[in-house]
Write a protein that binds this DNA or RNA. Sequence first.
RNA 1: GGGGGGUUUCCCGAGCGGUCAAAGGGGUCAGACUGUAAAUCUGAUGGCAUAGCCUUCGCAGGUUCGAAUCCUGCACCCCCCA
Length: 425
Amino acid sequence: MDIFAELDWRGLVHQTTDPQNLRQWLSEGSKIVYAGFDPTSDGLHVGNFVPLMMLRRFQKAGHRPIVLAGGATGMIGDPSGKSEERNLLSAEQIEHNLEGITHELGQFLDFDGPQAARLVNNYNWMKEWDYLTFLRDIGKHFPVNVMLGKESVKARLEETEAGMSYTEFSYMLLQAYDFVHLRKTHGCGLQVGGSDQWGNITAGIELARRMGEGGLHGLTCPLLTKSDGTKMGKTEQGAIWLSPKKTSPYVFYQYWYNTEDADVDACLRMLTELSEKEILSLADERANAPQQRRSQQELASSLTRLVHGDEGLQKANKASEVLFGATIEQMSDADLTDIFADVPSQELARDQLANEGLSIIEALCQSGLAKSKSDARRTVDQGGAYVNNRRVEDQSRSLTQADLASETVMVLRSGKKRYALLKFV
RNA sequence: GGGGGGUUUCCCGAGCGGUCAAAGGGGUCAGACUGUAAAUCUGAUGGCAUAGCCUUCGCAGGUUCGAAUCCUGCACCCCCCA
């Protein structure tokens, strides 16, 4: 399989050091490819997805991936694509972040077999350097005028008033040296990354050449952006994370399911492992029957399965079904807790359900769905109140044992999507 | 220092001394429609024991049967002249 051709049709090739040679080089046999991830937060998010998948694709095509966790570079802060100097993360924070992301990185790659992936941390080799030696051995190879010409630096100096510290300015040296180091110790010949990494990657190649290691390659993929120009993976509630602890499989699934028609094709190509044929056929279906949302379904399913496994996908599916209208009854507490993991819940005394029961108005207030009783009444009046996904039309309705959806839980909803759980214990 | 204008419900903004919980717009919420989209349409949008009552119009007093509307003082904002 020609990996380069595949990356090409997927739209993953943004810039390369030399398309002809790179393609040739890749076809010669199993190569070592690396991508770096800085521990700027304690988990991976959708923004890390594309480079991760790149490595995965390389591995599947018979190459060996190296994942570099930036324990050292993370301490400095990459200025690429940042308009302002950032606050330094504390050493403990970085340690914590590294722990978080390293194990997540693992799940995308195969760490066994002949193409076993490797995980390295650049802190392990950077910590050996002392300042003077680094300046003499590495810094000497970096002409400042070239560094000033790099987009990451230029943008900061020319287009903003933010300026840049010597620390961030030096970031490039560290990442450049990583490449050289991996070349020497692992025989790594290609670095991949997002398009904002181009400057850092070429700096590495340049450094290697000056240090007597020629023939390195670089490849960047486009940043995944939506048709409106905003970044993929950001919502008003924050980033979409890969860890189920930070973003539930359901929210993850829904995020992709709601992808705009205009964006879904690029997502399918860049993020999934569906074949070109499948993707073209989805494009066809989308053109003929957009309301079926088959593309979105495939995208959401395939990514959820990849990140959260079959079980996670099932949960997300079940949750979607329930959250979008299926009536809720005869379920277990465990099921409901799972499905409504992201939904606020309140505990109430069980005896509130006895006798007359709890009025729907009161219940809406208690659950936080209504700001006041008037608000609750309005909601009911307007037909926006639901118990266990059944509409409640009568203000005087009261809730009793019979309205429990499971052993102890009742599911309230206001409007289309706002849910709350009441637990009666 | 002198003069003028302003401060209204989530935001903007209208508001003859009674018919003002306060126009209109935005936002938000709900409903219909729909593709879990966009657009559109309808309704709602201080609180409560909801045919009624209570609390709101910068703050504190006052006039009046009655004040967001008039008067006095205070605070903050804007403009003009020095």
